[in-house]
């Protein structure tokens, strides 16, 4: 075995070299650490800028212009917004959409909560199966529900008019999709079928997280079932209720596919199925007025922001009370 003599000079150089390498490696590692997050978010950022930010800026630009292809653009200032304020079609679309949102919140959500309470009952057997059955309509999507609706609601021969006729003697020739009085009820009915089960899943999750001891304590104190629901269950699930209300309202204001397929792309008799997004589509892609369509889009965005702000305020005040 041969022993190597250590050379202090070489050691010093080697030390300083390895320190330099280490320092470089450290600096590089620090740089990587700094850059890595940006590198990881780059794909998202590119897509977000391309398909999120750019369209938003472009649509804002279009809202103040009249265009006819990329080479023909005229600045029109606030003309589109002025027109919108006096546009009877926009007013109808806003009314219809608000009506739909109203029914979504005040009809759909109580039913969803009732269904969740039912599914949460200890006496109910096969809850998982029921849960799937009620959730399933949501899986088909609005387009499919629309096409199904056309067949089911066809006067004289459709399943729904036939059922109403047999069960209650209702005139089967009623045009559910061809009479201005019945279009909104039909839309609401189909959306109930699609979303009651879906929303009930949220409520069910909230109900299952309510502390059972609170119910037991209330029962010991002599609280009735109703009192337990009102004073124990409702306060406990309030945050979830508010989230579902906000989501349902925003979803309702974005209603498009269902009336579009159900009414074959039209606004329905006497505009009874015209919603804000449908009007936006008609203005942009049927009339070819992308500037006005952008104005409708921005107005819808502002409405949704206002509604969300109000609901957020309400939610804060509710949390404050809690």
């Amino acid at each position: 075995m041969t022993s190597r003599k250590r050379n202090p000079m070489a050691d010093a150089v080697s030390h300083s070299t390895s320190d330099g390498v280490r320092a470089k490696a450290y600096a590089s590692w620090r740089l990587q650490q700094k850059l890595a997050p940006y590198f990881f978010i780059t794909p998202f950022l590119i897509l977000f800028l391309l398909f999120g930010i750019y369209p938003i800026i472009k649509s804002l630009y279009l809202a103040f212009h009249s265009t006819n292809g990329p080479r023909s653009v005229v600045f029109t200032g606030l003309d589109n917004f002025r027109f919108l304020l006096n546009d009877p079609d926009f007013a109808t679309a806003l009314f219809n959409t608000s009506a739909f949102a109203f029914f979504s919140v005040f009809l759909q959500l109580p039913l969803a909560l009732a269904l969740a309470l039912l599914l949460n009952s200890t006496w109910l057997k096969g809850r998982t199966v029921f849960r799937f059955i009620f959730f399933a309509p949501n899986l088909v999507g609005q387009v499919f529900a629309g096409f199904l609706g056309i067949v089911i609601f066809t006067p004289l021969y459709g399943l729904f008019p036939k059922f109403l006729n047999m069960a209650f003697g209702v005139d089967p020739s009623i045009k559910w999709l061809g009479d201005a009085n019945f279009v909104m009820p039909t839309l609401v009915l189909i959306s109930l079928w699609m979303y009651v089960g879906y929303n009930s899943i949220y409520f069910l999750a909230a109900l299952q997280s309510v502390d059972k001891e609170l119910h037991e304590a209330a029962a010991v104190d002599g609280a009735s079932g109703w009192h337990q629901f009102w004073h124990v269950t409702v306060p406990a699930i309030k945050p979830v209720v508010l989230i579902v209300v906000i989501m349902s309202t925003i979803g309702s204001f974005q209603l498009f596919e269902l009336p579009f397929t159900l009414l074959n792309g039209s606004s329905g008799p006497n505009k009874s199925g015209l919603t804000l997004v449908l009007y936006l589509y008609q203005s942009g892609f049927e009339t070819g007025n992308l500037g006005y369509a952008s104005t409708v889009g921005w107005t819808l965005a502002l409405i949704l922001m206002a509604v969300s702000l109000v609901q957020r305020k309400l939610s804060t005040s509710v949390r404050g009370h809690d």
């Binding site: 067949v151 066809t154 006067p155 004289l156 021969y157 045009k175 061809g178």
Partner: peptide, 19 residues
């Protein structure tokens, strides 16, 4: 006069029942 929604299946049914 009367009309059904544009629906090919129902067109057949309407002719079956001489609507």
């Amino acid at each position: 006069a009367y009309s059904l929604a544009w629906n090919l299946e129902m067109m057949g049914k309407a002719q079956e029942s001489k609507l």
